[in-house]
Design a protein around this nucleic acid. Structure first.
Lengths: 108, 108
DNA sequence: AGCAGTACTCGGTACTACGGAGTACCGCTA
DNA sequence: TAGCGGTACTCCGTAGTACCGAGTACTGCT
């Protein structure tokens, strides 16, 4: 699927939150997970900008740990504010996607 | 529902295409339809920028008609390129929304 | 020593939705 | 008849987000 970037705006951050919420993990691995999930064109630069934003907005707790196979990793975990933001994200997603599906089905 | 603007990026244009596709209509009415659909905060300025973009990208055919209750209206209808773009949009939407729903259900 | 793979940072760009001001036409009413 | 609310479109600037590219740096293998 080509060029999903515009459609991912506003949802990618939520996806990253969800991934972090289900397991403490780090940028490089998150990128791989998104790629496997079907978002093949999401690149590291994008994920790192999201992670830095989450950190700046105090939604995550960060722990640096040595890797063994490369430079140290920055592990991210949700804090309370992050979990709240994630819940809000899913509420918005539910709201928006249901309306769009309704429009698609010709329900007007 | 508050502040959906980021999540609507990339999808709003498709919604406008769908509305135009189902019936020849004009900017002001499209804005009202979107508001009724649940996107209450979408304002006229936003819809008009989308319409001008569609026109610039040659996805629509434009007809100006007098209104009777105000200034003349610019009616929009999809042309072949527009219908193709609309089909592409729904394919992308299907792709993206199904993956996000899968992520939500913990399918990783 | 050099390369591939892992891992993060930073500066700039493109695209999109929004806000606000401006223009303009119509019908109604004080 | 002047003003107001509703209809209808245009234009310009702003903010936010994903992407791109270059750079840095660590590890293990050849």
């Amino acid at each position: 699927m080509e060029d999903l970037t515009e459609m991912l705006k506003g949802t990618l951050e939520g996806c990253v939150l969800e991934i972090i919420g289900s397991e403490e993990t780090y940028g490089y691995a998150i990128t791989r997970q998104l790629n496997e999930l079907g978002f093949a064109d999401v690149v590291e630069g994008t994920v790192y900008t999201i992670l830095l934003r989450l950190e700046r907005n105090k939604l995550v707790q960060v722990t640096k740990r040595p890797s063994g196979v490369g430079p140290p990793r920055k592990f991210y975990a949700l804090n309370d504010a992050g979990r709240e933001e994630l819940a809000k994200f899913w509420a918005k997603w539910q709201y928006v996607s249901s309306r769009i599906d309704r429009l698609k089905e010709g329900g007007r």
